[in-house]
Design a protein around this nucleic acid. Structure first.
Lengths: 139, 139
DNA sequence: GGTATAATTGCAACTTAGTTGCGTTTGTCT
DNA sequence: AGACAAACGCAACTAAGTTGCAATTATACC
């Protein structure tokens, strides 16, 4: 995604254009998988913004709905862009129990569950653990 | 669940019978919702086992499949008994965005997702956020 | 373009959740 | 009852995320 498109996303969300925001959002858009604060910092190299700034940026992006926190069950948070998500859910996340890699299963469609009377579903997320195709192949 | 049933569970799992284990497993069985280490300690009062022991106990119970870690998206882990779970998934968890309470939706049935060729599903878990019936009623 | 102002940043110090090492205690097997 | 491994408790530690505050910078307005 081009730099100007990233800027547009930020502007449309009513956020000020700053270098850290553009770089962080850009790196999430480039990555195919949810990233942690640390992974974002790595990708941005020596000139990466301060860790506090990364967290605060992720929070404000999440607050505007540009980014989601993915709950992968580890002790660290992962973030990913929200642009492929529908209103009530994004794609399932698959974590391989052998290689520990997490993939976004954008091709898998999951129905929204029907909740008991009185409950309103705002957001549904599905996490799957198992063995990925690469690990299955390598036996 | 009676004390002797709890002991049986531990014995069948091949775990030694110790006071902390029985009390921790019992408290998870009594609670209707996933609990954190801290919540377990609270429930057990002043004579609660050491925090380290609680964590280690939860890990060994989880290792034997008596207990599952539920990923509720906070920074803290939650544990719940596994006795109502099927092999590949337990019930969905519902967290209310207003009162922040989490409920186990044991009555809601979710199909296992079909994954692309080469992937093996070992465990699927579903997290739902929304408004619970109590909060809906109270408007 | 210059300036005022509030939002944003970076740093350091802090909090919280979970972990590790190690000496002591306890359950189980015989 | 005794041996021995497993489990426990404590204290010190690590990792992830948070807070306060002073310095910087994006935007709005002239």
């Amino acid at each position: 995604m081009s730099n100007s498109q990233v800027s547009d996303l930020l502007r449309q969300a009513g956020l000020r254009l700053t270098a850290p925001r553009e770089r962080i959002l850009q790196s999430l858009l480039e990555a195919g998988a949810p990233l942690t604060q640390e992974q974002i910092a790595e990708r941005l190299g020596a000139s990466a913004p301060n860790k506090t700034t990364i967290y605060r940026t992720l929070m404000s992006l999440a607050g505007k709905g540009l980014v989601h926190r993915a709950y992968l069950g580890e002790r660290t948070w992962h973030f990913e862009p929200a642009h492929h998500c529908s209103q009530h859910q994004c794609h399932p996340h698959f974590t391989c129990t052998r290689c520990r890699k997490t993939r976004c299963m954008t091709q898998v469609k999951a129905p929204l569950l029907a909740l008991p009377k009185g409950y309103r579903l705002e957001r549904q997320s599905i996490r799957i653990e198992g063995v990925c195709s690469a690990c299955t192949a390598r036996k």
